[in-house]
Each structure stands twice: as structure tokens, then as C-alpha cells.
């Protein structure tokens, strides 16, 4: 059975696919946000200063 461009399966699983997609997008945002917070934290600037010294 070949899948048409808009197969019945796509409609049936739309909510599931949307949910997975949004979850993955949220995960990317969280990892990015955590990276920014960690990199802007004092630990990182202190470590950078130590390297410079």
C-alpha cells in the first residue's frame, strides 16, 4: 500500500505527530536555554579568567 501525499494515516495520527513535534521543539528550547544560563553563570566567567591569567 503506497502512501498518498495526504493519506488517512496522516490525519489519524496528526495529534500524535504534533505532540511529538512540540515536545521535541520544547526539548531543544530547554537545552538551548540551559546552555545560555550555564555559559553566562559565574563559574564559566571565573574559568575564563583563570585561563586568561
Amino acid at each position: 500500500m503506497s502512501l498518498r501525499k495526504s493519506h488517512e494515516l496522516h490525519q489519524r495520527r496528526f495529534s500524535r505527530n504534533l505532540g511529538v513535534g512540540l515536545t521535541l521543539a520544547a526539548f531543544i528550547v530547554i537545552v538551548f536555554g540551559l546552555t545560555i544560563v550555564k555559559v553566562s553563570g559565574t563559574d564559566f566567567s571565573m574559568a575564563t579568567q583563570e585561563i586568561q591569567n
Partner: peptide, 16 residues
């Protein structure tokens, strides 16, 4: 019959 066969298919909410 296809609709009946997939009536109990899990949605995202079921996994949640």
C-alpha cells in the same frame, strides 16, 4: 472497518 480497527489507537494524550 478501517475506522473501527483504529478506534482504539493511542493519541498523544494516552501516552501522556
Amino acid at each position: 472497518s478501517t475506522a473501527t480497527a483504529h478506534a482504539d489507537e493511542a493519541s498523544f494524550g494516552d501516552y501522556f
